[in-house]
């Protein structure tokens, strides 16, 4: 096991243009499950591919287990990777797919069977060893890819959106299995995804990337509750955080914290709303509204209410809502970074 460290890691594909990855400094913890989260084009896959050695960095250093590996070939880095497409070898049986890394690295042949059976057993695919990849379902392919990754006991796991090819139902159970699998083997893991639910559910820490820059590193709770800037605030959460213009700052609050006045306890900011639309989503309701009065009039906000609360309001109705003060977040309008709390001149 080992930690992965990047120092000022940069990748520029076309000289003169903005880099795909810019000055990224990261340090994983031993055995950590770290998630790179960002929209497409945020540089998360490029970053992972540089750590894997499949992409040459333009500048900076990569260390795995304290060893500089920046210019080593992928095979010399002690890593294993699971690809978005799984990249199973189509002409080989499942057994040969899983034993491929062993053969490639010259592990004595007598040890293959035992190791393959151990890896296949861990993932519950022991009966599939004689099949070809095309005879497997999506979930089975994903497990074969994982078995192939784990078979030579790598120091670091790199996973590139391994669940994106599964259907929604399978994805939820695969998420749980992956977490359990990680807990069992305890190998340092870097996981790339654009899906915030995966990131929140699985990550020990999340690295939020945008346009090749790291915007925030923190536990799922930290990045959700205390976003470092407006990008993180609006990228995480569905619907995203409300941002209301207030002079030189933007005031942010989560839709689930914008509640009817009677439900909010303690110090709170009152907001009058005019409801423009309601979505019934089963377990919750999404309220689209405009702020009705004062200096914030006509700014758009979204509220998320539990289904157990009867809204009663229809389109066009004016209702009294409020946000507890401890749930307000403030962002500088020009830098878009988080700033300290301040008193609001609400009226």
């Amino acid at each position: 096991m080992a930690v992965v460290e990047t120092k000022d890691l940069t990748k520029v594909f076309t000289p003169g243009e903005r880099g795909a990855v810019n000055d990224v400094n990261l340090l994983t913890r031993e055995g950590e499950f770290m998630v790179f989260l960002g929209p497409s084009g945020s540089g998360k896959t490029t970053l992972l591919r540089m750590i894997a050695g499949l992409e040459d960095p333009t500048a900076g250093e990569i260390l795995i287990g304290g060893r500089v590996v920046t210019h080593l070939a992928p095979r010399d880095r002690g890593i294993a990777m699971v690809f978005q497409s799984y990249a199973l070898y189509p002409h080989l049986s499942v057994y040969k797919n899983i034993s491929f890394p062993l053969r490639a690295q010259g592990v004595p042949k007598e040890e293959h069977r035992g190791k393959v059976e151990w890896a296949a057993g861990l993932l519950g695919i022991g009966e599939l060893l004689e099949r070809k990849p095309r005879e497997l379902s999506g979930g089975e392919r994903q497990r074969v890819a994982l078995a192939r990754a784990i078979v030579r006991e790598p120091t670091v796991f790199l996973l590139d959106e391994p669940l994106s090819n599964l259907d929604a139902k399978l994805r939820a159970s695969a998420r749980e299995e992956l977490t359990e699998f990680h807990d069992r083997v305890g190998t340092t893991t870097i996981y790339v995804t654009h899906d915030q639910i995966e990131a929140m559910a699985m990550g020990d820490r999340i690295v939020v990337l945008h346009e090749g820059f790291v915007r925030q590193v923190g536990s799922p709770r930290e990045v959700y509750d205390d976003p470092a800037d407006t990008f993180v605030a609006t990228f995480l959460g569905s619907p995203p955080m409300n941002l209301v213009d207030h002079g030189d700052v933007l005031v942010g609050f989560r839709p689930e914290h914008l509640l009817p006045r009677s439900l909010v306890e303690g110090q709170a900011v009152e907001i009058g709303l005019r409801v423009t639309g309601i979505e019934y989503l089963g377990s919750e309701r999404i309220l689209y509204a405009l702020i009705d009065r004062d200096r914030f009039a006509e700014q758009r906000v979204v509220a998320k209410l539990p289904a157990t609360y009867d809204v009663g309001a229809a389109g066009g109705d004016a209702v009294d809502f409020a946000v507890a003060e401890r749930h307000l977040r403030f962002f500088d309008k020009t830098s878009e970074k988080r700033t300290g709390a301040r008193a609001l001149e609400w009226a």
Binding site: L54, M81, A104, R148
Partner: peptide, 18 residues
């Protein structure tokens, strides 16, 4: 042939030529 296959083979321990 998806280039991810070759990436996988290189991570698994082969050179590009192999």
């Amino acid at each position: 042939i998806p280039s991810e296959l070759e990436d996988a083979a290189m991570v698994d321990g082969l050179t590009r030529f192999q």
